[in-house]
């Protein structure tokens, strides 16, 4: 945990990114976007507020989805509801919109942000698997040498452990970007929990690949809630890459999940059930793609 203070001494709601980054330069600001992770965490005592409370919601340009160019850009403060209602995005990256569809409840979706979901770095975060299979990167900005500096980090390299990322305390996540998928790109998302509504994923699976002449290429498979961070399932991908999408390949991919998933027992599910669900979902998304 970062250093803590007992009381919030300043509340900031800047309109400009550079103001926000200057306020963060000393590393003593708690960033607050939708607050749907932050509020429960501070309430339970798992985390303390720092001296400054920085609200991101008024910063111009931090919110919005740009699907116009070769690079798709989603502002960090974009809400899950915005994603869910974005028709162009649904055509480009159905897995992402599907994940938004199964995210929490209407009230939470209206507040929760994409950036908050990634920065919270929960292994169960629902934005991570679809963004991982889209090959997304995050933009991290800070105030240095009297200017805004931005670096890009591939999402795969962003997560360190539950709740930890490579983001430095003075950095703000400003956007998620990914290349417009090529023709023939398909993507899917599947998650499960003991109840259909308002559910934290017991396990989630995303698939992204190009499909041509019945073969898969550029395969990316990502898993949530089966390891300390959301992860790419390299063995499953290898079992699929360049292969014809038939029953044998699917069976091999299902078997390979055992090499990628490292699930644990916790209060939500046993390791057995998580491993089982990964197999079920990997097979399900592959069969689904095969049918199309």
């Amino acid at each position: 945990m970062s250093e803590t203070s007992e009381k919030i001494s300043a509340y900031l709601a800047p309109r400009r990114l550079d103001e926000a980054l200057q306020a963060m330069a000393d590393g003593d600001a708690t960033v607050f976007c939708g607050g749907t992770d932050l509020a429960p965490q501070t309430e339970s005592g798992a985390r303390q507020y720092q001296a400054k409370l920085l609200n991101l919601r008024r910063i111009e340009g931090l919110c919005g989805i740009d699907t116009g160019g070769g690079e798709i850009r989603i502002g960090a403060a974009t809400t899950i509801s915005d994603l869910r209602r974005n028709a162009p995005l649904a055509a480009i990256a159905p897995a992402l919109v599907e994940a938004a569809e199964h995210f929490a409840s209407e009230q939470i979706r209206n507040a929760a942000s994409v950036g908050g979901n990634l920065c919270n770095a929960s292994p169960a975060g629902d934005m991570s698997p679809p963004l991982l299979v889209l090959g997304a990167a995050v933009e991290l900005a800070c105030w240095r040498d009297r200017a805004v500096q931005v670096r890009r980090v591939p999402l795969e390299a962003f997560f360190v452990s539950p709740g930890k990322t490579v983001r430095r305390p003075e950095e703000l996540l400003t956007a998620v970007v990914f290349e417009r998928p090529a023709d023939g790109f398909v993507s899917r998302f599947r998650k499960s929990g003991p109840r259909p509504a308002l559910e934290i994923s017991t396990v989630s699976v995303a698939l992204g690949a190009r499909i041509a002449d019945g073969r898969l290429s550029g395969v990316r498979v990502a898993l949530g809630s089966v390891a300390p961070t959301p992860l790419r399932a390299r063995h499953v991908e290898a079992a699929l890459e360049g292969r014809p999408l038939d029953a044998t390949t699917i069976a091999a991919a299902v078997a390979a999940t055992a090499d990628d998933a490292r699930p644990i027992d916790d209060v939500r599910a046993s390791a057995w059930y998580r491993g089982h669900l990964v197999r079920v979902f990997v097979e399900e998304v592959l069969n689904d793609v095969r049918r199309d």
């Binding site: 029953a247 699917i250 069976a251 299902v254 078997a255 197999r279 079920v280 097979e283 399900e284 069969n287 095969r290």
Partner: peptide
Amino acid sequence: AVEPRLAGTA
């Protein structure tokens, strides 16, 4: 048997 039912789910 690892996953007897999966084969039948396609």
